[in-house]
Computed example of a mutant assay.
Amino acid sequence: MFSESAPAKVNLYLHVTGRREDGYHLLDSLAVFGPVADALRVAPADDLALALEGPFGATLAAEPDNLVLRAARALAAAAGVPARAAMVLTKRLPVASGIGGGSADAAAALRGLDRLWGLGLGEARLAAIAAPLGADIPVCVASRPARMQGVGEALSAAPALPPCGLLLANPGVALPTPAVFKARAGGFTPPAALPAAWPDAAAMARALAALRNDLEPPAIALCPVVAEVLAALRALPGCLLARMSGSGATCFGLFADAAAARAAAPLLPGRWWREAGGLYETGG
């Protein structure tokens, strides 16, 4: 049996830079990971099966063919091997929440089954298999900070990030990504100019404050409680920056360190989903 973590993806900024002729939007975003993750276990079996557990497992039970199963079949087809594995997904991340939970789960399946089946395909090949399944899955394969461009498939190195803390908060409302893009109005935002590194979390927050998440206004129009979450985060002691991640409704607060983020979490309403800590470290 092999186990893989599927950490939350957090977009520190997200600019919509254009739109292709096929309707897909072009993006520019800085993605980081942490501080909470789903977990996927894979083991040998005679066929392909997926069991769901965890606080959000029941939410996926109605999906007969979710991204984990699709990723498994895509990997088997690419490698020319039978799609045989027993998989158990512990779902801790809210569904349709802007932190790439389904994408992270699919990426975990690709990594775990690559190990289980002894394929040794490597990160680049797994990312190529992932790309047709969803724009966020390639960055989740590596689960390390990266700049995302194109429709999400064009990945490059992120600036060197300082130690910092993240507090994630979700009001318990699902926001489907297509609906948020459809509600978006206005033009496009140029790509960001990023430095090679930030010396500390405060400097990073100041730079990010000059950027934006272009999906925040349409998300708030569809789900006004997002604005309430952002206001609550901004009011917390030590919060350096508050912003929505992805297409929402999860928002994050950036703090100087993990301890400050954890200390602030209980100050948010208990009815919201809340997780706090440091950035995810691959293999950690």
Results as ranks from 00 to 15, higher is better:
F2D: 04
S3N: 00
E4Q: 15
A6G: 03
V16S: 09
G18R: 13
R19H: 10
R19F: 03
R19M: 12
Y24M: 09
Y24H: 13
H25R: 08
L26Q: 13
L26E: 15
L27M: 04
F33H: 03
G34M: 03
G34T: 06
P35C: 12
P44S: 10
P44R: 08
P44H: 10
L48H: 06
L48W: 03
L48D: 03
A51E: 14
L52Y: 10
G54L: 04
P55I: 10
F56Y: 15
A58F: 02
T59L: 15
P64V: 13
D65M: 02
L69Y: 02
L75F: 03
L75E: 01
L75N: 02
A77L: 14
A83L: 12
A85G: 08
A85Y: 07
A85F: 04
A86Y: 04
L89Y: 09
R92D: 09
P94R: 12
V95I: 15
G98Q: 11
G98K: 06
A106E: 00
A109L: 06
L113Q: 02
R115K: 14
L119Q: 03
L119R: 06
G122M: 03
G122V: 04
R125C: 01
A128P: 01
A128L: 05
A130C: 09
A130Q: 04
A131V: 09
A131G: 02
P132N: 08
A135L: 05
A135T: 05
P138V: 09
V139G: 02
C140M: 07
A142D: 01
R144V: 14
P145M: 07
R147H: 02
Q149I: 02
G150R: 05
G152Q: 05
P159Q: 13
P159A: 13
A160T: 15
L161Q: 04
L161V: 10
P162L: 11
P163H: 07
P163D: 02
G165S: 10
L166F: 12
A169Y: 00
P171C: 06
P171H: 00
L175I: 01
T177D: 07
V180W: 05
K182I: 00
A183T: 02
F188R: 12
F188S: 11
A192H: 12
A192F: 12
A193S: 15
L194G: 12
P195N: 09
P195V: 12
W198F: 15
P199S: 11
D200I: 11
M204I: 07
A205I: 11
A207K: 01
A209Y: 05
L211Q: 13
R212D: 14
D214M: 06
P217K: 11
L222R: 14
C223W: 05
P224I: 11
V225A: 15
E228T: 15
L230H: 08
A232E: 11
R234Q: 15
G238A: 10
C239F: 01
C239Q: 02
S245W: 01
S245M: 01
G248I: 02
G248C: 10
T250H: 10
C251H: 03
F252K: 05
D257L: 11
A258S: 12
A258F: 09
A258R: 05
A263Q: 14
A265L: 10
G270F: 05
W272Q: 09
W273S: 08
W273A: 11
E281N: 00
T282R: 15
